[in-house]
Every structure is written in structure tokens, then in C-alpha cells.
């Protein structure tokens, strides 16, 4: 099975990794994705610099240590206020969370993808889903609109 899909996976990585290499992501999702999606981002050369759970418990945080690097910011059931301040400080290239967070960060000029509903795209699971995941992360981060957030007459 792995061999059957290896060409597809390399193809996706060859196309999208150069466009996403080195980009930083902060996540805040439910109970599993804050750790389980990290590998997918890393396959594309991206770094998860912050993550946390809405309703995870001690054992989830324990398990998370196996997925993240030292120095990763971890937040538990983060509040709106905290998340905003963290993103302001850390300045990630992408935030992945839910519909109630999306527009806050977009207005701050930070690209955002919903990691509950896949922003009405998807699927992201599996080999076929990986291609869609990569396309969507690229589409969000490399959207030309983000370069326009400061009006040219605002120094």
C-alpha cells in the first residue's frame, strides 16, 4: 500500500514543500489533531511552534511531547485573549483552529485554516487527503491578498 502511494506522496511534497519550507504554524484544535497533524506539516517542511487542546487531558499532553520539539509553546484550553497575545508575539505564518478563531487572526493579517471543518475543503486524511491538505496550506499562506494588508500610504 505504501509503495502504491509513494509516487503520489513524493509528487505532493515536490510541488508544495518548496513553497512552504520553514513556515511556522500554531494550532489549537480539539483532542487529537493538535498532535496528530504535526507530522503532515513537517512532511511539507513546516514547523509547529505552538499547539494545544480544547478538551485534552494530562495523558494527551504527555503524548504530545513525543510529537513536538523542545521550545514549542503548549497551551491548554487557551482563551481568546491568550491566543491573540501568543500569536502577536510568536508571529506564525499560519494559525490552524476553528471557525470562532478564524476571522480574529485573518484580520490581524495572519493566514488561517480551520482544522475542525478543513474550512469546508478536505478530506485531509489518508494519502489522497494529503494532496488536498498541502494544496490548501499553500493556498492560504501564499495568497496574494496578505501582502496588501498595510495600505501603501501607511508607512
Amino acid at each position: 500500500m505504501i509503495e502504491k502511494y509513494s509516487a503520489l506522496v513524493s509528487g505532493v511534497i515536490d510541488k508544495y514543500r518548496p513553497r512552504l519550507e520553514g513556515r511556522k504554524v500554531m494550532l489549537f484544535v480539539g483532542g487529537l489533531r493538535p498532535r496528530h497533524v504535526i507530522g503532515a506539516y513537517e512532511d511539507l517542511g513546516m514547523e509547529v511552534v505552538g499547539t494545544g487542546y480544547e478538551f485534552g487531558h494530562n495523558d494527551d499532553y504527555q503524548r504530545t511531547t513525543h510529537y513536538v520539539k523542545d521550545g514549542t509553546l503548549i497551551y491548554d484550553d487557551v482563551t481568546g485573549y491568550e491566543f491573540e497575545k501568543f500569536v502577536e508575539k510568536v508571529k506564525p505564518d499560519l494559525v490552524g483552529s476553528g471557525i470562532k478563531e478564524k476571522y480574529v487572526f485573518q484580520k490581524m493579517g495572519v493566514p488561517f485554516r480551520q482544522m475542525h471543518s478543513w474550512d469546508y475543503s478536505g478530506p485531509y486524511h489518508g494519502y489522497d487527503g494529503f494532496a488536498i491538505f498541502a494544496r490548501d496550506m499553500d493556498m492560504a499562506i501564499n495568497n496574494p491578498a496578505w501582502r496588501l494588508t498595510r495600505a501603501p500610504w501607511q508607512a
Partner: peptide, 10 residues
């Protein structure tokens, strides 16, 4: 306008 573009560009 930029906000609307960001919301819908996907």
C-alpha cells in the same frame, strides 16, 4: 475589502 477577499479567496 481585503477582509472579504481573505474570507473567500479559497
Amino acid at each position: 475589502l481585503l477582509d472579504a477577499i481573505a474570507d473567500s479567496s479559497a
